[in-house]
Structures are given as structure tokens and as C-alpha cells.
Design a protein around this nucleic acid. Structure first.
Lengths: 159, 159
DNA sequence: TATCAATAGTTGATAAAGTCAACTAATATT
DNA sequence: AATATTAGTTGACTTTATCAACTATTGATA
């Protein structure tokens, strides 16, 4: 007879009063990122998918604009743009109307992989929200929006 | 007359089809962590609030147990426990029933600040979910649970 | 118009948090 | 008794972030 050792292996996600929202959100965020990586198997880009999609979709994206869009530090943006430039996915271009600004231009390579990135977003979303009715989807989205509004004055914690 | 320059300053959180859940969750997670830090102003602990609360509340918490509870690498757990030990908030104690296991024991100092940590969790939660009816709260919680179940097979992305 | 303040971006030093592989010690399996 | 597995540790490394100091450019103002 095999005596299975009784180890404490609690579920990561037991809903109890004590589990803070910070953990739940961060945890689900990591899960979603993991899913996107699984779906978007590409040698050309292993991270910064959302950043690149913003660059591709918006017009005249400056680095400061990305700071505002993503809520990250400008120094971090510099390094990410360096990385994407190295990968030949974007180019910096000085704005003639304000020579301080660097407009980030996606390359054709980036434009090409954009649909795959967005497909990965949709696949992940479909996986996460599987079983949600149309009404529930709308409600959930609205709830997230309300939460964001409620927390708009709170500083981000980037660690 | 002051000519206000028209910069592109989009809201961080515009709900559109293209904004991936990964970003929304991570973003709200950071917001919540920021709120907890704001609320829990303490010299004794600036991070790992949730980790410490799990240690305080559960019985016989081993490091492996924390790996399972928080979904993080065992090497990371080692370093966090080192940090908490240095701060005199926990102690390692070898389990006599299985001398491989280190049971993490909270100190009285940790037990003392636990209510403050939990109060910060509740304050943040109240802020985030402000305006939610009792019914909506239950629904939201249930939706998060469904999402977690949907994604249980997906690997985490720890970056 | 000259001066000063503000803004966009860069850089360097540093910190936090994670990875992976190799390792020890203890326990479980066969 | 030999081997496999598990818990924890360590070292080298990577990613992602911070902050402060810096340049270049533009805006405000006296």
C-alpha cells in the first residue's frame, strides 16, 4: 500500500475574504500574458505585444504618449523602443513640428505581425471569458471600467 | 492669450476591443498595490504584504506551500523569506516530521501588524469596488473565479 | 528679445523580482 | 541497498522597473 504523503497544496485561487484584489488582478494578468505567449509563438517578438499594437494602431505616437498610454516610466519606454528598434519593428522619427518629440513609426515587419498579435489577444480573451454570455461580457467590461475610475487617483506600483 | 499645446494624452484605460485583458488586469493589479502601499504606511514592511498575511493566517506554512499559494518560483520564495527574516517578521523552523521542510513561523511583530495589512486590503477593496451593490460584488467575485478556472491550464508569465 | 521654466528624451547607477541549473539534505520507492 | 523524488539553497543571469542628472528644444514672461 502506498502511503501518499499529505502535503499542503492549496489552490492558488481560493476565493476568500482575505485574498486581496491586488493579488487576484496581478495573478490573472500573468495568466493572460502566459496565454498570449503560448498563442503567439513568434521569433520576432516575445514581449511588449501590447506596446507594439498601440504603436501600430495609433497615429503619431510619441514616447511620452506611450508613457501616458501604458502608465510606465519614460526611461522604461526608451529601453523598450531601443529593443523594438533593434528587432527592426519600429523606427524613431523626429517630429518637425516639435523637434523634442520622437514619433515612433512601425515598420512593415511590425504591421505584418500585428494581426497575429491581435489574434492572440482575442484568443486569450476568448479563453478567459469562456462561458460568459454577451450580457455578462458587457457587464464585466463595465465593472472593470468602474474599478479603474474608482482608482484613477491612486499611484501605480510598478514593482 | 495662452496657446495650450495640443498633446496626445489619451486615457490609460479606454475600453476598446484591442486592449488586452492581460494589460487591464496587470494595470489594475498595480493600481491596487499602489493603494495598499498608500494605505499601509509602515516602516516595517513595504512589500510582500500578501505573502506575510498568508504566513500569518495559515498553519504550518512551508516554502513549497507558498510556492503553490502564490504561483511563484521556489528560488524567489527563498529570497523573500530571507528578506522577511532580516526584517524580523518570520523565522524558519525545521519540521521534525519531515526534516526537509522549513515551516515559516510569523513573529509577534508580524502578528501585530497583520490587522493593519488586512485593513489596507479592505480599504483598497472598498475603494476599487466603490458603488458596487452586494449583488454586483458577488457577481464580480464569481466572474473572477470563472476566469481563473478557464485559465487553470495556462502557464504563468512571471516577467 | 533675453531669460527662465517646462517638456521630450537619454543615460547611468541601482533595485526588485524573476529565471534556470546545479547543488545538499532528507525522505520515499522499489 | 540503490535509486528517485522532494524541499530548500545558491549562483549567475535577465527583465523591468526606479531615480537623478543630463541635453535639446520649446514656451512663457518680463
Amino acid at each position: 500500500m502506498i502511503l501518499q504523503k499529505q502535503t499542503i497544496k492549496p489552490s492558488v485561487f481560493v476565493p476568500d475574504k482575505e485574498k486581496p484584489l491586488s493579488f487576484i488582478f496581478s495573478y490573472l494578468g500573468k495568466k493572460c500574458k502566459g496565454s498570449i505567449k503560448e498563442t503567439f509563438q513568434s521569433t520576432s517578438l516575445d514581449r511588449y505585444h501590447y506596446m507594439l499594437s498601440v504603436i501600430c494602431r495609433k497615429q503619431k505616437v510619441t514616447q511620452q504618449c506611450l508613457v501616458n498610454s501604458l502608465g510606465i516610466d519614460k526611461a522604461t519606454v526608451v529601453r523598450i523602443i531601443d529593443y523594438l528598434t533593434e528587432k527592426k519593428l519600429v523606427k524613431r522619427s523626429i517630429n518637425p513640428d516639435d523637434r523634442r518629440e520622437h514619433i515612433i513609426i512601425p515598420t512593415t515587419k511590425a504591421i505584418k505581425i500585428l494581426p497575429k498579435i491581435e489574434a492572440a489577444f482575442l484568443t486569450t480573451q476568448a479563453l478567459a471569458l469562456k462561458g460568459f454570455s454577451r450580457k455578462e461580457l458587457a457587464l464585466f467590461n463595465h465593472m472593470l471600467l468602474r474599478i479603474e475610475t474608482n482608482m484613477s487617483d491612486v499611484k501605480l506600483d510598478e514593482k
